[in-house]
Every structure is written in C-alpha cells, then in structure tokens.
C-alpha cells in the first residue's frame, strides 16, 4: 500500500546551531495512526509542523499522496492544505476568543470554498458540531463559554471540516484532566473509523499513545531512535531509551514490583548534540563505540527498527534497575 505521508531524511536547523530535527524518516498509511513520542526538546512538535510544511525544512522530502510538498508553489500548497489539518495542544490558546464557535468552524470551509451558500455553510457547521458531540446552539457561543474538553472538540470539528485525509494532533489531550482525556481520545478514534482519517499523533504520554496508536516512533534529541507497531513497542522495546521511558512512567498499581530505570543526568541541548549515539551521555549501556559512531537504524523485526549498537529486547539488564 502506498503511504499517505512519506517523510524522508527530514531536518530542521535553527540559527545558532540548533538541530531541532536532524534527519528523520517515517511514513503513515491511509487510515493509520502513527504516534511520535518523546520528551521536551526532542523535536516532535517541530516535526509535526514540518510535516504540514507550516515550517520550512532544512533538508528532506515530504511526500503527501505521492506529491512532494516541497516542490509545490505557494498556491498549490494552499490547495493541498485542505487535505492536511492540525489540532493543537492548548484548547485555550488555539481558538480566537472573539469569534463564535460557528465562525471558527466555518473559517477553513470558507477559505477552501467548500460551502457555496450561507445555508450550506450553516448545515455543514451543524453537522460538524454533531459529529464531535456538541449541541447545535454552540455555534452562536464564544470559546470562553466552553470547558477545556469542549474546546478541544471545537478544535477537532474545525480540523475535520474540510474533509482532510491527514490530521496532525499535537498533544491534543495533554492539557486535559484525566476524566476528560478519554472523551477526546475516543472521539478521535470514532472519527478515524467513520472518515478513514490518518493521524500523526504527537504525545509525551506513552499510556495515552498505547490506546490510540497503530505504530509508534520514539524521538530523542532530533532523531527517531525506535519505530515499531504499538503492540511490539510496548511488549519488546529494543532501544535503551524506549525502555527507560516505559519504565519511568508511574503506574497506578500500588505495591507493583517495578524495574525502574532511572536515567542519570539531563537531556543535552539541541545546540550541543553529543557525538556518536546522542543518547550515550545518559545510557546505562554506553560503550566506546557509542561515543564514537552513530548507530545505524537496524531492523530487528518486520516493521520494527532501533538505532542502537546493542539493540536487543530488554538490553538493560535487571541488576542495573531499581
């Protein structure tokens, strides 16, 4: 099957020697959810903006439906954007407080000329509100009259309005209380089933990712260190960073036996990326080769790659855990 989004060797360098994204490749199939996970500064949000060409990449290609977005003229890119929408993290900052919900949802429809008449527009807005579980009278109200969870639904209604095939969701539930996260995650899954959407789901919370992603790519300091189908990544992580990340998440099971890997030190600055493997400064397994040579992306199973000289299931032995 051809990928809907195919990204190759993508990088984004900012002035001052910041290598925010440094040569990453991934693809997303139609109807698939790829989660991009990592800690702050790993480049996951920058990647989500590069994928839509909201940011200009330094190198690399972004193929969307086989067409390289980097070669498109500004006008052609604008037309293409109809197929690629985004949902932002902060439901408070991403909706214009002076527009009604109806105006907010109608805006992309108007920009792309998708509702020729006033009546058609109103009907489409009402249909979108219904799809995300908001009452029809929401259209006349303002963002401040809605809670965080409801605002995120509004953001989703705005994103799916133009019938996109890809939606980038950048930490869409991180700002929400846990009792509301389920509402938004389940809504995204329902919409995927109904509309055949593909998602690039950017998140730091691995437990949320577990519930929504088909595949997961783990980022560290501007590169992808491991990619695998979700079930495999959680069952048999091969990169020591993925292992550490999985073991660090506190689990709501009192008294559970834990094999916690506590990484020492801080995440290095993307301005001063360590040579060799970028993770070697914090890796409990680091050897001389890790300090000198960038590890190649090894295929450890079909669809499962890890960039580590010592990639193995559970590479970090139990005795070095706590």
């Amino acid at each position: 099957m051809t990928a809907l989004l195919d990204i190759e060797n993508l990088s984004k360098h900012f002035p001052g020697g910041v290598r925010a994204v440094d040569g990453i490749s991934f693809h997303i199939a139609p109807g698939e959810t790829l989660a991009l996970v990592g800690e702050s500064g790993c480049g996951k949000s920058t990647t989500s903006r590069l994928a839509l060409r909201l940011l200009e990449p330094t190198t690399g290609s972004i193929r969307f439906n086989g067409e390289d977005l980097r070669t498109l003229s500004p006008a052609a890119l604008r037309r293409r954007r109809r197929d690629m929408q985004i949902v932002f993290q902060d439901p408070y900052a991403s909706l214009n407080p002076r527009m009604t919900i109806g105006e907010i949802i109608a805006e992309p429809l108007r920009v792309h000329g998708l509702a020729p008449t006033r009546a058609a527009m109103q009907a489409r807005v009402a249909e979108l509100l219904d799809r995300v579980g908001l009452p029809p009278d929401a259209a006349a109200r303002y963002p401040r009259q809605f809670s965080g969870g409801q605002r995120q639904r509004i953001g989703i209604a705005r994103a799916i309005g133009p019938n996109p095939s890809l939606v980038v969701a950048d930490e869409p539930v991180s700002a929400l209380d846990v009792s509301l996260q389920g509402q938004v995650v389940n809504l995204l899954q329902d919409l995927q089933e109904q509309l055949g959407l593909s998602y690039l789901f950017v998140a730091h919370d691995l437990a949320v990712v577990r519930h929504i992603a088909h595949r997961v790519a783990v980022m560290y300091l501007g590169v992808i260190v491991e990619t695998a189908p979700a079930d495999r990544l959680f069952a048999a992580p091969h990169h020591p960073y993925t292992q550490a990340l999985l073991s660090a998440a506190p689990e709501p099971e009192p008294g559970a036996v834990r094999n916690r890997i506590i990484l020492q030190g801080e995440i290095p600055s993307p301005r001063a990326i360590p040579p060799g493997c970028r993770f070697h400064t914090r890796c409990p397994l680091a050897q001389d080769i890790c300090r000198a040579q960038t590890p190649p992306n090894q295929q450890v199973a079909p669809g499962h790659t890890a960039a580590c000289h010592f990639a193995a299931p559970y590479p970090i032995p139990t005795e070095s855990r706590r």
Binding site: S147, G149, Q150, D177, V178, S179, L180, Q181, G182, Q183, V185, N186, Q189, D205, L206, A207, V208, R210, H211, I212, D231, F234, L246, A249, E251, P252
Partner: peptide, 24 residues
C-alpha cells in the same frame, strides 16, 4: 472508581478509554 478506570495504562491493550461524562 471513574478516575481509576479513566487513567490510561501502559499495559492495557484495549483501544477505547473509559470516559466520565460531563465536565468538572
């Protein structure tokens, strides 16, 4: 009970998350 059911868990393979209706 609702809060405990709503917490997403690393080793839970269920696709759907439990949701508490309404808002705080």
């Amino acid at each position: 009970t609702g809060l405990l059911r709503a917490v997403p868990r690393l080793h839970d393979v269920q696709r759907r998350l439990y949701q508490i209706p309404g808002n705080v």
